[in-house]
C-alpha cells in the first residue's frame, strides 16, 4: 500500500515537472503550424529583411525588419538604463547598506515587479512622453526612448535580484584577501567582487533582455508604433510584440496577415530561446563558483 502511494506521488510529481516542457513543445508546434503557412505565399527573406510592413494593403507587404529593429532599439535602450542602475543598486544592497535598510530596499525593488505594465504604460503616456517631448524638443514624446525608460523599470527587479545573488555568492575569502592586501572597501568591490560575479551579472543582463523583449502592453502604449527603420532612440518605433497585439484582433483568420502574426511569434520565440540559453550558461558558471565557495 505504501509502495503504491509512493509510486503514485512520484509519477504525479514527474507529470507536473514534465507538463511545462510538454506545454512549451506544444506551443512551439502550434506556432510553427500557423506561422510556417505564411511562407507558402511570402518569401522567407522578404519577410525577415523586408523594410515595409503593410499587411492589409493590396498587395500586402510583410517586411518585419523595422519591427525587429524596433524591438532591438527599445531593448538596447532599456538595458543601457537598467543595467548600471541595477548593478549599483545590487552593490549597495549587498555590500554597503546597513542591515535594516537592506531588507527595506529589497522588498521595495520587488514591489516594482508587481506594478502592472499597463500602469507603467499609462504613466508613460500621461507623464513621460510630454516630458521627453519638451526636453528633446521632439514632435512627439512617443518614442523608443519612452519605451526604454519604462521597460528599464520593469527589468530592474530581475536584474537587481540576480546580480545581488551573484555578488553574495562570491566567496568571502576573495574580498578578505583583497582587504588584507590593503585595498579599500571600494577597491575590493570593483576590482575583486564585481569581476568574480561577472557571469552572474551577464545572466542578469540576459534575463533582463528577455523580460524587455517580451513586454507588450507598455510598448504598445508609448512607443508610437510607427513601422519605420529607426536610426535613433528619439524616433517612434513599432516592436514585434506590439504588432501582434495590435493586429491580431482584426486579422482575418486563415489570411496571410494572420499567418504573418504567428510567424512573428516564431521569431519572438526563437529570440527568447537564444537569450534564455545564454542566461542559463552564465547562471551555471555563477553557480559553479557558489559550489567552490562551499
Amino acid at each position: 500500500m505504501k509502495n503504491l502511494f509512493e509510486f503514485i506521488v512520484e509519477k504525479a510529481i514527474f507529470l507536473s515537472g514534465a507538463a511545462s516542457i510538454i506545454f512549451v513543445v506544444l506551443i512551439f508546434i502550434f506556432l510553427l503550424k500557423e506561422g510556417l503557412a505564411l511562407f507558402g505565399e511570402v518569401n522567407f527573406f522578404a519577410f525577415l529583411f523586408g523594410q515595409n510592413w503593410y499587411p492589409i494593403s493590396d498587395p500586402p507587404q510583410f517586411g518585419i525588419l523595422p519591427l525587429i529593429m524596433g524591438s532591438v532599439f527599445v531593448t538596447f535602450g532599456a538595458i543601457v538604463i537598467a543595467v548600471p542602475l541595477g548593478l549599483a543598486a545590487a552593490i549597495y544592497i549587498s555590500e554597503v547598506a546597513p542591515h535594516s535598510i537592506r531588507g527595506f530596499l529589497k522588498s521595495g525593488i520587488e514591489l516594482l515587479a508587481a506594478i502592472p505594465s499597463i500602469v507603467l504604460g499609462f504613466i508613460g503616456i500621461i507623464f513621460l512622453a510630454p516630458l521627453l517631448k519638451n526636453i528633446f524638443h521632439l514632435g512627439s514624446g512617443l518614442t523608443a526612448l519612452a519605451g526604454s525608460i519604462m521597460l528599464a523599470f520593469m527589468a530592474l527587479p530581475t536584474i537587481v535580484s540576480i546580480i545581488e545573488d551573484a555578488i553574495v555568492s562570491v566567496p568571502r575569502s576573495y574580498k578578505e584577501g583583497a582587504l588584507a592586501l590593503g585595498a579599500t572597501h571600494w577597491q575590493a568591490i570593483y576590482r575583486v567582487t564585481i569581476p568574480a560575479a561577472a557571469s552572474g551579472i551577464l545572466a542578469a543582463v540576459m534575463l533582463g533582455i528577455g523580460r524587455v523583449v517580451g513586454e507588450t502592453m507598455a510598448v504598445l502604449m508609448i512607443t508610437g508604433n510607427a513601422a519605420i527603420m529607426p536610426t535613433s532612440l528619439l524616433q517612434p518605433v513599432r516592436t514585434l510584440t506590439a504588432t501582434v497585439a495590435a493586429e491580431m484582433g482584426e486579422a482575418v483568420s486563415g489570411s496571410s496577415h494572420y499567418y504573418s502574426l504567428f510567424a512573428i511569434g516564431i521569431v519572438l520565440f526563437i529570440i527568447s530561446f537564444i537569450i534564455n540559453i545564454f542566461a542559463d550558461i552564465f547562471l551555471h558558471r555563477s553557480k559553479a563558483m557558489k559550489r567552490r565557495k562551499k
Partner: peptide, 25 residues
C-alpha cells in the same frame, strides 16, 4: 498608404491624449 512615420495609436483615447498635449499633432 499611411506613411511609415505615422504614429499608430492603440485607442481613440490615446489620440485624444496626444492631441491635447501636442500642438503639432
Amino acid at each position: 498608404e499611411f506613411a511609415p512615420c505615422v504614429l499608430m495609436m492603440p485607442s481613440s483615447q490615446a489620440i485624444v491624449e496626444e492631441i491635447n498635449g501636442n500642438t503639432a499633432a
